[in-house]
Write a protein that binds this DNA or RNA. Sequence first.
DNA 1: GTAGCAACTACAACTGTTGTAGCGCACGGG
DNA 2: CCCGTGCGCTACAACAGTTGTAGTTGCTAC
Lengths: 104, 104
Amino acid sequence: MRCRRCAPVPEEVRRAAGLLERRFAVSILWASHEGATRFNEFQQALGSVPPATLAARLVELEHAGILERRVVDARPPRVEYSLTERGLQLQPLLAALVRFSQYG
Amino acid sequence: MRCRRCAPVPEEVRRAAGLLERRFAVSILWASHEGATRFNEFQQALGSVPPATLAARLVELEHAGILERRVVDARPPRVEYSLTERGLQLQPLLAALVRFSQYG
DNA sequence: GTAGCAACTACAACTGTTGTAGCGCACGGG
DNA sequence: CCCGTGCGCTACAACAGTTGTAGTTGCTAC
């Protein structure tokens, strides 16, 4: 009972993990790390992602306060997604992921 | 081509992301960070996790070389899961996740 | 007018996840 | 011997998430 290993995973860690534990979420964040990104730029960056899934994930990340959706009034009008200030705080996590993935 | 944002997410990043993008994967890693953990310790740490999902995730992480399964010949015999050397390399990522989750 | 692009939405098929139940093995007590 | 308990799962049907393909809307350019 009082063994540390049984201690519940803290609520805030669960919430953050819950965001990443969805299909393409991490890759979307990676693709965003260089600046504002468009819907079909995501499609190219992620390879074959079903548009419905991409749209759903973008909405989720927006509602979570991590991505910001902006309509650019140009011709043709386009939509850009960029990391919020909160989203930028994920950079260390992404950097750690890259270091992990490169070692193996 | 030519725009950096369209550059595909590198294959190794996708593979690492693919591991984390599954239900409870991150929480399982978090729960493992203090040492060998048993099946029902995970159940307590994660709250209400369906045993089928937990079992599936443990097998996946084992096959990915991140967790190691060891049967301890005691009474009653028990099974312990611990991070491999490879799995320990995820610690910076988990630390970054914790820092992220604590700020907001 | 017809062809193209951008950013999606619609929908049915498929895969993953959930809750609940139960199994096999080893004790330990009565 | 039989019953109950703890452990580490497995079985299965209902449900939620994901997939591929197709189509829509609103524009502009040829």
